[in-house]
Design a protein around this nucleic acid. Structure first.
Length: 479
RNA sequence: GGCCCCAUCGUCUAACGGUUAGGACGCAGGGUUUUCAUCCCUGAAAUCGGAGUUCGAUUCUCCGUGGGGUCACCA
């Protein structure tokens, strides 16, 4: 029935690190467009020349791709609405602003930053909401002359005095704001650049964006955008404001101060991109059948922005860790080997990876955990002698080590089966306490109390290394 | 403070106005096991408060309370 082509967008600003919340929002825009065979557009909003960070655009593009997402139109791809970088679209914004002035929907303002901040200060002192006082509105013809003489100016939106401004939010229903609480937003800055508000509206319109899923923090500026659409006589997109991520302590918007927020850092920490995406999918949304593991494809099929919970959500790292573990265990071994490669320490024996990895795969929460679980395979170990004799005496342990070494040294075929047979026979023959003996051996050979299965570990470690470690521990005890 | 948004276990959520309020993570206990982990089983754990509407409110309405967002020539 609705034949409209869905077009969504994400509009990152190259002012710093790309946040996990941005990826989560991007994912929803992406999925919604894909579900309806529409287009997902990426647009760079670099209208703040002051906060521009060199190289940030490249980083943003690369992290989006690293998460396994992509865009149909935008930087590197082009499209029917080129360019997709706002700093390359400058001339149109000024024309739009001028048009609004002409239509009486906006006005020139030459108030100095000093005057504005003094005004704000005074308003705050008087417990008044900070708002532009329209000092320039009544002197437009005078100001026009000053501008012609070269004076700097901005263009402000003339917000109606008092009428309700409302829009229908996909997630929250109708939201209405009294226009009296909306400030006369600057649309065109004195450097000739548009502000965000003018730029998004103009670009979303030109790029024929039909649906805007964006962070909840934008709700309060949406009335400005609605007013702009009205002033231009354009049809606004359908908005959906997505709840923000809260800090793990549940207090306040997720922030750098309280932990990691950058999208790249989670990848660097050894989380799989598909696990992160899955986590973002189910944070504030569930499929009909309540399952919590979904592929991107399934998500695209089942996702509907209307079903997003309007409640802010705590970024629960424990849940993320669980999902990550699930995904690691789902990975075919060859694929896991490939993925874990960047996380291997320099001294890791690459040729033994295919033997070591299966022993620790079930123990990995993140890919980065590989190092802490495997060091005893390729680094020398240090042991607390107390650990060896914890459930026995030095004499008995020395004896156990010597006999074990003896038995193992006679094995020609160094396989799990052979090792296990010899050691179990010895243990039974001598009636050694099982737990004590196996734990002692584990500590002697790995230096740790928690390791992969003992016999497998010994096989991978190799006969020579095992024997020498048994010898070293035995020597250490006898002195 | 103004404006706006939100409210079910600790966390994320499910429940045509009628359920012993369900699931998942986490937590506790147990099983498998030579340790840890994986895996399996069991358990504790929630409808913010008050008025309405209704035969009946987690669900609808209002008022509180609490939390969050936002108030730039930043996005």
């Amino acid at each position: 029935m609705n034949t409209q082509i869905i077009r969504t967008r994400m509009a990152p600003s190259p002012t710093g690190e790309y946040h996990v919340g941005h990826i989560a929002t991007l994912l929803k825009n992406y999925a919604f467009a894909k579900k309806h065979d529409g287009a997902f557009i990426l647009r760079i909003e670099d209208t703040d020349q002051f906060r521009l960070v060199p190289g940030a655009v490249e980083k943003i593009l690369s992290v989006i791709k690293a998460y396994g997402l992509d865009w149909d139109e935008g930087p590197e791809k082009g499209g029917p609405h080129e360019p997709y970088v706002q700093s390359q679209r400058l001339s149109r914004y000024k024309d739009y602003a001028l048009k609004l002035v002409e239509d009486g929907a906006a006005y020139y303002c030459t108030c100095s930053p000093d005057r504005l901040s003094a005004l704000r200060e005074q308003q705050q002192k008087d417990k008044q909401p900070p708002k532009y006082d329209r000092h320039c509105v009544s002197k437009q013809s005078e100001i026009k002359k000053q501008i012609d003489a070269g004076e700097e100016y901005v263009i402000r939106l003339l917000v109606p005095d008092d009428e309700p401004v409302s829009f229908d939010d996909m997630i929250r229903g109708e939201i209405t704001t009294p226009s009296a609480s909306v400030d006369d937003q600057v649309l065109l800055k004195s450097d000739g650049f548009p502000t965000y508000h003018l730029a998004v509206v103009a670009d979303d319109h030109e790029m024929e964006i039909t649906h805007v899923l964006r962070g909840e923090e934008w709700i309060s500026s949406t009335p400005k955008h609605v007013l702009l659409y009205r002033a231009f006589g354009w049809e606004p997109p359908v908005y959906g404001h997505i709840p923000v991520f809260l800090n793990p302590d549940g207090k306040g918007k997720m922030s750098k101060r309280k932990g990691t927020v950058s999208a790249q850092s989670f990848l660097d920490a050894g989380y799989l991109p598909e696990a992160l995406l899955n986590f973002f999918m189910i944070l504030g949304w569930t499929p009909q059948d309540q399952r919590e593991m979904l592929t991107l494809h399934e998500y695209i099929q089942e996702f509907d922005p209307k079903d997003i919970s309007p409640k802010s959500v705590v970024f629960d790292v424990k849940k993320l860790e669980w999902i990550n573990g699930q995904y690691i265990r789902l990975l075919p071994s060859a694929e896991l080997e490939r993925r874990i490669h960047p996380f291997l320490p320099d001294d890791f024996p690459n040729d033994a990876l295919h033997k070591i990895l299966p022993l620790v795969a079930d123990r990995l929460v993140t890919l980065r955990d590989i190092e802490e679980h495997t060091t005893f395979f390729y680094r020398s170990i240090t042991i607390d002698p107390q650990l060896l004799t914890k459930k026995s005496t030095a004499t008995e342990v020395t004896n156990q080590l010597a006999e074990t070494k003896d038995v193992l040294s006679r094995i020609d075929d160094w396989t799990v089966e052979e090792i296990e047979r010899h050691i179990r026979d010895l243990q039974e023959e001598r009636s050694w306490h099982k737990r004590q003996y196996f734990m002692m051996l584990r500590v002697a050979i790995t230096g740790k109390t928690a390791t992969p299965p003992l016999f497998e570990t010994m096989e991978v470690l190799g006969k020579e290394k095992v024997l020498s470690r048994l010898l070293i521990q035995s020597d250490a005890l006898s002195v």
